[in-house]
């Protein structure tokens, strides 16, 4: 049974077809790139998985459950099982690194003891132990993205979804971020990453799903950006 399955997804925005009968599946523990030019619908796929977007038709199965059938009160549970990393980091500038990560646990009323144990652990995993009390404006772009990854990992999610995580950082920091994602994947977490950074995709030699004009142009294990 695949961990994630997109079935015949059609999505239009103001008469423009963004996703046209998209179907693919991802197995537990895979590392998958969704690639394509800007506006190809990569972010829409990520948003559908966490039910931030709805398709016109089709369904998305996560652990065999259609995410669009989940009652609203259970959406938080779905999002706790999927860690999300954004291109713009989505950090709170008024909170330090520790607090930005802790928020993921505070929202589920995790006990203080748990927060005190988990936050330093995930920060250590992304190599930011020494920046625990720094404010976001004291961090580089790469470090901000690593905080974002640490926050996504706080719930020990089944899958980590990254939407253009290297889009706003320099190439060296981008490599560091990719090393971290690979390490997380090696520990068993599925990674789904939307990107248009062909250098990274070509270097990683992972499964690549290429979307163009709303359709899947290629889907290859060990593929490159262009197929």
């Amino acid at each position: 049974m695949p961990q994630i399955e997109f079935k015949d997804i059609i999505k239009t925005y103001e008469n423009t077809v963004v996703l046209d009968s998209i179907s693919f599946s991802i197995e537990d523990g895979e590392f998958v790139f969704i690639v394509g030019p800007s506006g190809a619908g990569k972010s829409t796929i990520v948003k559908m998985l966490i039910r931030e977007e709805f398709p016109d038709s089709g369904c998305v199965l996560f652990s065999d459950q259609n995410v669009f059938d989940i009652p609203q009160c259970d959406i938080p549970n779905l999002r706790r099982r999927i860690g999300v990393v954004f291109q713009d980091f989505k950090l709170l500038n008024s909170k330090n690194v520790f607090e930005n990560v802790a928020i993921a646990l505070e929202v589920v009323d995790a006990p203080e003891e748990t927060i005190k144990n988990i936050v330093p652990n995930v920060l250590s995993m992304v190599g930011l132990t020494n920046k625990m009390y720094s404010m976001p404006n004291q961090l580089s772009g790469g470090e901000k993205q690593r905080v974002s990854i640490a926050r996504a990992l706080a719930h020990e999610p089944d899958i980590l979804v990254a939407d253009e995580p290297t889009g706003m950082i320099d190439p060296v920091s981008a490599d560091e971020v990719m090393d971290i994602l690979e390490k997380i994947n090696s520990l068993g977490t599925t990674i789904l990453m939307a990107t248009h950074d062909y250098n990274i995709v070509n270097k990683m030699k992972k499964r690549v799903i290429r979307i163009e004009n709303g359709k899947i142009k290629s889907d290859k294990i060990g593929g490159t950006y262009n197929g």
């Binding site: 966490i50 931030e52 609203q72 009160c73 938080p76 549970n77 779905l78 999002r79 706790r80 999300v84 989505k90 709170l92 928020i103 993921a104 929202v107 589920v108 009323d109 926050r151 996504a152 706080a154 719930h155």
Partner: peptide
């Protein structure tokens, strides 16, 4: 806005 958006994205319940 941003704080609430992040809370919801990381799985905050309505009640929270």
């Amino acid at each position: 806005g941003t704080e609430l958006e992040i809370m919801k994205l990381v799985g905050a319940s309505d009640t929270y």
